[in-house]
């Protein structure tokens, strides 16, 4: 994708988001404006419209340039870098969602050990047992001692099982 194509997509997304936002404001927030004061609807509506206007500016700016303008990349390089990028996004989001889910059901200790092990092993593909074990247990114990014991931060208990050091 060239920068112009990215801008075009961004402009369209912003206009759509703005339209949806304004529709949401008008249909869900009661209008309390009576001319002498600005109600709860005024600010969100004004800001939504402004976002749409800025989206339109981005879109118009991208249309001023020709298709060939911008930072065009070699096709092979694009697909390779896009693959890595998608992998990084999915890995990060997946690990964080998994961590939250595991913490809720298995508690802090098991969740931290498992998530760290999965991050180092299957995700980063570093298959060194000592490193995986060291990092998993080290992080779990370190955070438990510093956050839980020293700083008194509440660490989650699991709904199904729970282990504490």
């Amino acid at each position: 994708m060239t920068t112009q194509q990215t801008d075009r997509l961004l402009g369209i997304i912003l206009i759509v988001v703005s339209a949806l936002w304004c529709f949401g404001v008008v249909t869900t927030i009661p209008s309390l404006d009576d001319g002498s004061r600005l109600g709860a609807r005024g600010f969100p509506l004004g800001l939504g419209l402004l976002l749409g206007f800025l989206g339109l500016l981005v879109l118009l700016g991208s249309l001023r340039h020709s298709e060939t303008d911008g930072e065009a990349l070699v096709e092979g390089a694009v697909s390779a870098s896009l693959r890595v990028e998608v992998w990084a996004i999915f890995s990060t989001v997946g690990l964080l969602v998994l961590y939250a889910f595991l913490m809720e059901y298995t508690g802090f200790v098991i969740a931290t050990i498992l998530t760290t092990a999965i991050a180092v092993g299957p995700v980063l593909r570093i298959w060194r047992p000592k490193l995986i074990a060291g990092m998993s247990f080290g992080l779990s114990l370190g955070i438990y001692l510093i956050f839980g014991k020293l700083l008194g931060v509440y660490l989650p208990y699991g709904k199904l099982i729970n282990i504490a050091f």
Partner: peptide, 8 residues
């Protein structure tokens, strides 16, 4: 990886 855990 450590920061990811800290974020959670």
């Amino acid at each position: 990886v450590g920061i990811l855990i800290m974020c959670g």
